[in-house]
Structure formats: structure tokens, C-alpha cells
Design a binder for these strands. Structure first.
Lengths: 224, 224
DNA sequence: TATCCGACCTTACGCCGTACGGTTAGCATT
DNA sequence: AATGCTAACCGTACGGCGTAAGGTCGGATA
């Protein structure tokens, strides 16, 4: 430990910040009040002086995640702004892999609200009607969060081979190949191919969606 | 092999089935081995005779969810098949609202594998190349899962008013309105409007994505 | 009759979140 | 110097969790 004389005081902000790095390192299910308190150099119950409950910490952590998203500025061109936002979201959600499993949370924090406000502002400034702005945000957010979720639920190692016992696995795989031929075909002829990485799929979908939104906006501006 | 029918025996299947209905009713975080055992009429540890672990149950529950998705048949027209699949997924995921928060799971079950195999088969039979089939599935699944996630994290009651103390809430809302004007604008001029329901956003996005996939396929078939 | 075994139970361990009630150090006021 | 206040932290305890290890017992089988 660095400072021995006076320990850096614990605050809600610091507790949440440490909780984020701890969850990044060991996963969200390993984040307990006791472990977090130990990391902060205090006892478990002392956390409750700074923080209302564990849910309070979780809410704060989600707000930290939103604060790391790329937030569009007022005059930005909408397509590049949305593109960059989407890519930053994917990047951040991949780094804080626990965030997507917390996403089922209420009460958004100030960073979250500010971010969303800016996104709406950017689209509106670009001439989007309110309903179209709603549509655009809904589809973009759904896609990005869903993709991050898919990506997080993939088998972790990138190696094509599956480690462990060889004979059993081989026999089992042969059975799977027969029972699910299309799946097996996709595995060998696409996913296990040298250059393939699931992350690349993101760009295809993002471009498709942005094209669709652009088309919808073109229709809208043509028929005011 | 005559069997005395003194009482319905507990099996892995029945345990998982009951776990699903219990999670539907009380949420996934309230599903414990003890509660599930009580529901089945046995003691907690007796579950471990039928089931490997709690994770085993969770895996089984997810497989049940997949079994409820609409699975395309061999000769189906791809667009209608994908449309129906997507809508059924949204419906099922909304009913089993716990499923999206479990989604971060490995080892897919047989129903899951079979479903995915059929989806790939449908797209391939419709002339999709393997990479395009991968793209289509990736974007559709990401969108649908992401939308279900968004939908699940909305405030629960559909009433426009927020219950509870009136004065504090009103003062707080005024502050929010000033700090996040675009958000407030969208709230009053779109979301709180009489006819609005977030679920309607689904159709816009789904049509947009299916249009985009159709366009990509048209390009592909034109340039073989 | 003797054996076995599927199906269930009991006990115990080490985690978890947190309610409740101290204790201490630093400071302002008297 | 004595008093009192408050922010910051600690100890104990409770009920609940997943599950390892081993026990029990009635019916099927040899």
C-alpha cells in the first residue's frame, strides 16, 4: 500500500470506482460488500456510511459505464456521431463485461440522463422528428446492447480447438455434427475459418441500421 | 415395468419446468434451491440427485426458453420465417423476463442447438451464402435480445404519473426538466402521449433490418 | 431371503447482504 | 481545559444462500 500515515478517505465515488475495477477483474458475481470493503481498507459495514445499499453501488457502477460512452456534441453530423457512439458503447461494454448483466436496473444516474439528453439533442438538431429520433435510438441501443450481450456469451478462448479429453469430445462432436448439420457446417466453413472473429459482424449490422435510418430520414424530410 | 403411482416423482425435466414457472412468478433472484425444492415437495439437497448444480438448472431453463421460440421449417420463405421468429422471441423473452439476465451462459442445450440449426437451414435454403447467413443471424439476434433487454429495464407501471409524494417529486422533476431539456421534451411530446407504447418501436426496427438483409441478399444473388 | 439402489433426508460449512448498536478522532464552542 | 457534536468507521448477529458429505429406507431384483 502506498500511503501509510493517512488513508485516503472513502467516499461514494471512490467506492463505486473501486467496485468497477474490481468487477472488471473478477466478475460481478464475485463483487461482495466484504471484498469491496477490504479493497478499500475498511470493514464491510463501514461501507454503509457512504452508500445506501449494494443496489446503490450497482446503480452507480452503471452510471460510470454511461459516462464512458462517446457523447455527441450539439452540432455534430448525426451519422458520424451515432457511429462513433455505437462503437464506443461496444468497446466499453466489452471492457466492463458485467454491465450488460446489470442492465436490468431502474433509476438511471445523472451521467446516464445527460448522455441520453445529448443523443436526442444531436438527432433533433439534425432535423429528426421526435418519433423518428425515438425510433433511431431504440433500434441503435437495442442492437448495440444485444450485440454486446451476444459477444459476452461466447466461449471465452479464441482457439479453434477445444481442450480437455480428446476421445470423448471427438465422439460427442461427431454426434453433434450429425444431429445439427447446418450448425456444424457454419462452424467449420465460417466461424473456425482463420480470419473470422465475431466482432467483425458488428460493422455489418451497424452500417445496415444507419443506412436504414438515413433512408427513413430522407423520406421524412421529403414529405414534411 | 409397472410403477406404483404413490406420488409424482421429481425428475430433472420437472424440476426445470417448475423452476421456470417459479422464476416467471417471483423473479430469477428469488429462485433458490430451497424454494424450488419446497415447491417440488422435497428437501433442498434432494434436488442434487436429479440435477448437477444450480447452473445446471439455469442452463435447462434457458433451453426451455429456446424451445418456445418459433422455429422455421425447411421450405419456409426466409423473410416471413425470420419475422415470425423475431416476434415470437420478443414475446417469449417478455414472458420469461428473467431469461435475458441469464443469457450470459455457456453450454447451450439441445433445444437451443436445434433451433439455431433450423434457422441456418432456412436461410441457406433461401440461397443465403454462409457469411450472409451469419450476418443476418447476428444482427437479428442482437436486435431482438437487445430490445427485450431494453423493454425489461423500463419502469414497470404503464401509468404516466409517478406515484408517491407529490411535492418533492414535482420539484425534482422541474430540475430534471431544466437539466435535460431534450429528454424532457421527448418524454412529454412522445413517450407520455396517449397512444405510445415502447413495444411499438419493435416493428420499425425489425422491418428496417429485414429490408436491409433483403437488400444485401439481392446484391449477393446479382453478383454470384 | 439377501442384496442393491434409486430417491430422498440431515447436518454442516463458508459465503452473502445488512439491521443495530458501539467507538473513535477531530473540531468548535464555551 | 472541558464540553459536546459529528463524520467515519467497527463488531456482532441474523437469516438466507449453494453445496459437500454422509445417512436412511422402501421396493425391485437375484
Amino acid at each position: 500500500m502506498a500511503k501509510s500515515k493517512t488513508r485516503e478517505p472513502v467516499s461514494r465515488e471512490r467506492a463505486i470506482r473501486v467496485a468497477v475495477t474490481l468487477a472488471d477483474a473478477t466478475g460481478i458475481e464475485a463483487l461482495s460488500m466484504r471484498k469491496l470493503a477490504t479493497e478499500l481498507g475498511i470493514e464491510a459495514m463501514s461501507l454503509y456510511y457512504h452508500v445506501k445499499s449494494k443496489d446503490d453501488i450497482l446503480d452507480g457502477m452503471l452510471d460510470v459505464v454511461y459516462s464512458e460512452f462517446s457523447t455527441p456534441r450539439a452540432g455534430d453530423e448525426w451519422r458520424t456521431a451515432m457511429h462513433e457512439r455505437a462503437e464506443s458503447m461496444r468497446r466499453v461494454l466489452a471492457q466492463h463485461h458485467w454491465a450488460i448483466s446489470i442492465k436490468t436496473r431502474t433509476s438511471p444516474g445523472p451521467e446516464t440522463l445527460g448522455h441520453l439528453d445529448s443523443v436526442i439533442g444531436c438527432l433533433r438538431a439534425a432535423g429528426f422528428s421526435m418519433p423518428l429520433a425515438g425510433h433511431a435510438m431504440s433500434i441503435l441501443d437495442s442492437y448495440v446492447h444485444g450485440f454486446a450481450q451476444q459477444e459476452a456469451s461466447l466461449p471465452l478462448d479464441s482457439s479453434g480447438d477445444i481442450g480437455g479429453a480428446t476421445k470423448d469430445v471427438k465422439a460427442q462432436q461427431e454426434q453433434i455434427t450429425q444431429a445439427f448439420p447446418n450448425l456444424a457446417d457454419m462452424a467449420v466453413s465460417l466461424i473456425l475459418q482463420p480470419g473470422y472473429a465475431y466482432g467483425h459482424e458488428f460493422d455489418f449490422g451497424l452500417k445496415l441500421i444507419l443506412d436504414g435510418i438515413a433512408a427513413a430520414q430522407a423520406v421524412e424530410t421529403a414529405n414534411p
